[in-house]
Computed example of a mutant assay.
Amino acid sequence: MKRLLFALTIILALNVALAANVDLDQLDIAKFSLTTDEEKTINFEETEYIITTDSITPSEIKLFFSPNNLVITAKKEKPIEIDLNNDREVDFSLTYLTNLDAVTTIELKKTDLPEDEMDDESSPISDLNPKDQVNDILASIKANLKFLVYAVIVLIVLIIIVKSYKKRANPERLYSKAEALHKEAQEFHKDGDEETAQELYDKAEELREKARDMENSEV
């Protein structure tokens, strides 16, 4: 059961990480990974957009944005400008960076950044002053906070389920219940109801077998 809980926790953590939104209302520059069958949600001007991959090659990627039904094609390492909200103004640039083992890395960068930030392509975060770095980290945590809350809630539910299972499946409880059934069977036997008595004897023996199996598995 501990192994099952550990596996479920790992799966949950991976799902949360993959499902995390990219919040362009909080971040000026964002990098994220995308696989062929994966969807990525981005927040821009308090609106959610879903990005899916239409096709991926080593030199080119084709993406579909919904619900605005925008289709864009990007060449590798060549930024393209995107008007996401159809206001005839460029909102951000998109760059297809890498594609390794079917995992594509994409960078989104707002176009209204100061010139010194726009000119630096190598490391969008490392050259920020410490205060700005902290603000970016806090913004990223805030953007993904609801997914972390969901993860904690699900983990708590799993722990409660496991504890409840262990409590109900305690060998001593099974032995106690088997003894009660055995005594009840004896009463039916005294009254001459052999059929009911035998059914209760059988159920009591089944519980004893389960209890013995549990004891052996714990050794």
Rank of each mutant, 00 (worst) to 15 (best):
D119V: 09
F6H: 15
I137D: 05
M1F: 10
V16M: 08
E205F: 01
D23V: 02
K31H: 11
T95L: 04
A7F: 13
T98D: 08
D120C: 03
D25L: 05
I80C: 11
T98A: 05
L113D: 03
E215C: 14
D23W: 02
D116S: 14
Q133W: 04
N85G: 06
A178I: 01
I80Y: 01
T36C: 06
A185G: 04
R168H: 11
K146T: 11
A17K: 07
I61Y: 00
E209M: 09
V162R: 13
I153F: 13
Y49D: 03
I42L: 14
D25G: 07
A169Q: 12
D87R: 08
I29Q: 13
L4K: 15
D202A: 07
S59A: 09
H189Q: 06
S123E: 11
N99E: 04
F6W: 13
L12I: 03
I82L: 06
S217Y: 10
E45N: 10
A143W: 03
V103E: 08
I125D: 10
K40H: 08
E81N: 12
L155C: 00
E172Q: 15
E215T: 14
I72F: 03
L12Y: 01
E89R: 05
L97W: 04
Y175Q: 02
L200I: 01
Q198C: 00
E206N: 10
A143T: 06
A151G: 06
Y96M: 02
I156G: 06
L181K: 01
T47H: 14
I10C: 15
E205D: 05
E48Y: 14
L27K: 11
T105F: 04
D91I: 04
N68E: 05
E60V: 01
F92H: 06
D54K: 15
N85D: 13
K31G: 06
L94E: 05
P79Y: 08
A20I: 00
I156V: 13
S217A: 15
T57F: 10
K190D: 00
D91A: 13
K78G: 07
N43Q: 08
E39Y: 12
L97T: 02
K183I: 00
D213A: 13
K190T: 05
A151F: 02
K166F: 03
N21H: 06
K210I: 12
T9P: 03
A20M: 11
N135V: 08
G192N: 01
A204R: 02
L145P: 00
L155E: 02
K78H: 09
R3P: 02
K110L: 14
R88D: 12
A102Y: 03
L94Y: 04
T196S: 12
S93P: 01
T47A: 11
L24P: 02
S123F: 07
N216V: 12
S140I: 00
R173N: 10
L18C: 01
S140C: 05
E218A: 15
D25V: 05
L84R: 01
K62R: 12
K167D: 04
K177G: 02
I156M: 07
S66R: 09
L5T: 07
K110I: 09
K109L: 09
Q198G: 00
S140M: 03
T98N: 09
T36I: 12
D120E: 09
T196P: 00
D191I: 00
P171K: 10
A30Y: 08
D101F: 15
Q198T: 04
I153K: 13
V162D: 04
M214S: 13
E115N: 13
D127H: 15
L12K: 05
L84W: 01
L5N: 10
